[in-house]
Design a binder for these strands. Structure first.
Lengths: 260, 260
DNA sequence: GCATGGCTTGCACGTTTGTGCACGGTTATC
DNA sequence: GATAACCGTGCACAAACGTGCAAGCCATGC
């Protein structure tokens, strides 16, 4: 590890940049004035360093210092829509996650938001069939990422098929976030795609608890394939403004309802 | 002449280099001026030593001295660097791809560029252990994407381990793009990470042809684990400006060389 | 002996790179 | 809308750089 800066110790220019990068990775941001003090050079030199790093697109130069670039995976079409709503849902959904848990995260735009919203420092293991979820978590400190392989279905944005199924069946998780096409307090979870059904079922069965995170319309639309009975759905996270009658029905079914 | 004679302090060049290396390992860096003083030789000699050590990739030469080669930066950073060079290499590399072929694309920043450069309308099947490669191809018309699952190693940016290995062994491909850490016309392909080796080997063995896409420095640096003999490397794509002698050696070994 | 060639070394040269400072413009914050 | 902090640029200077070269050393062989 890097030792704390020794006062009279000289650092090579390039070494200084490396250390700035490291600091950046750890703290997410650096302040030019602090760095100047720490490395005992003028702020001009620090600014030059930051500019250079920014030119290599290793950080983003901002007023007063620099920020870590968190490259957001290229956003699929659906994801672009209603980003804000999904982020709000995700923020609540991740509060259900405990330390050192193992999570199944299914493919889907809302689940991408959930992955991005997962807090650091919980030492989580995330199992996912969605490349964008995996990518969002690669390099995040304290995360172990397990990717479910298989043929990727473009419509879904994740692996499906027997290969994926077999891998899922070999894992047990604490929490499961299935992608939600439609859900109903009487019958439970429904899905459009036949291939997806078996995967979601396997995920849910392999998990201690299941969290449904749904924008309001998911609770009033219908889908073609029955996927899971309501008893297996532990939590429901929905937006404010959802029909209270619907929520009561879910509560009556034994699901813990969380309103954003 | 100008230097005072110190009896018994004389060191052979090779011995001096060893001592420099030792110092490097202990402190993480060395400063040319200090070494000159310590070994009682001119800075010129020290600089020559450092250059030589750097050529053997035992250290990283920087302004003022040399640094220990720290572990490779995370994939997210590597992918953002040298974008233009990688794009140019990728543009040539993809010209080796035929219609309706099955491709193995390994994890790695250059391979990300290759995936992005693959042409539409070739009805390709891409098998990859890298989520970012998969993500780049999801939704591209005419592509079938197969994701290799397993534990994702953040440094590498792709799945590794026995789970990934088994999946790879169940597939036969036409073309393989292994990530290149170092390559040599005599001995073939070398890799830094032990886990990666088995994966790359399996990919190469399961493919009809193998394409090495390498920025110039990969052909003069060394890595720790032998991965594939030169006979199994069908094509080499390199940048203009690579040492002609090196390229001739590759040609002599039977590899088809493509210069960008 | 001494000539030869390989190797290392220090020096001189011109070039590149890093640094701090002064200047005037820009941006946050109250 | 004033103030202070922060910014980029140009500049001068010093340190570090690579290169070419000649001197020195040593082993080898005539």
């Amino acid at each position: 590890m890097t030792l704390p800066e020794v006062p009279g110790e000289a650092t090579l220019p390039r070494e200084r940049q490396d250390r700035i990068l490291e600091r950046l990775r750890r703290h997410g941001r650096v302040i030019a004035a602090d760095l100047a003090l720490e490395f005992r050079v003028s702020e001009d030199s620090i600014r030059r360093d930051l500019r250079e790093l920014a030119a290599r697109s290793l950080c983003k130069r901002v007023y007063g210092g620099a920020l870590l670039i968190r490259d957001i995976p290229p956003i699929a079409e659906r994801r672009r829509e209603q980003v804000e709503r999904k982020r709000a849902l995700a923020a609540v959904a991740v509060s259900l996650v405990g330390r050192r848990q193992i999570l199944f995260i299914d493919a889907g735009s809302t689940n991408s938001a959930i992955a991005a919203a997962l807090p650091d420092g919980h030492e989580l293991t995330v199992v996912t069939n969605a490349p964008d979820v995996a990518l969002a978590l690669i390099g995040r400190p304290g995360f172990e990422v397990l990717c479910i392989g298989g043929r990727i279905e473009p419509k879904i944005g994740g692996a499906v098929g027997s290969m994926a199924l077999r891998q899922i069946q070999g894992i047990r998780a604490d929490l499961c976030f299935p992608g939600v096409c439609a859900a109903d307090a009487q019958t439970g979870l429904w899905t459009f795609d036949a291939e997806e059904v078996v995967l979601k079922r396997a995920m849910i069965e392999a998990s201690g608890e299941t969290v449904l995170v749904a924008t309001g319309e998911k609770l009033i639309t219908a889908a073609t394939h029955h996927t899971a009975p309501v008893e297996s759905l532990t939590h429901l996270v929905v937006e404010r403004g959802t029909d209270p009658a619907v929520l009561d029905a879910w509560r009556a079914a034994g699901t813990s309802v969380h309103v954003v």
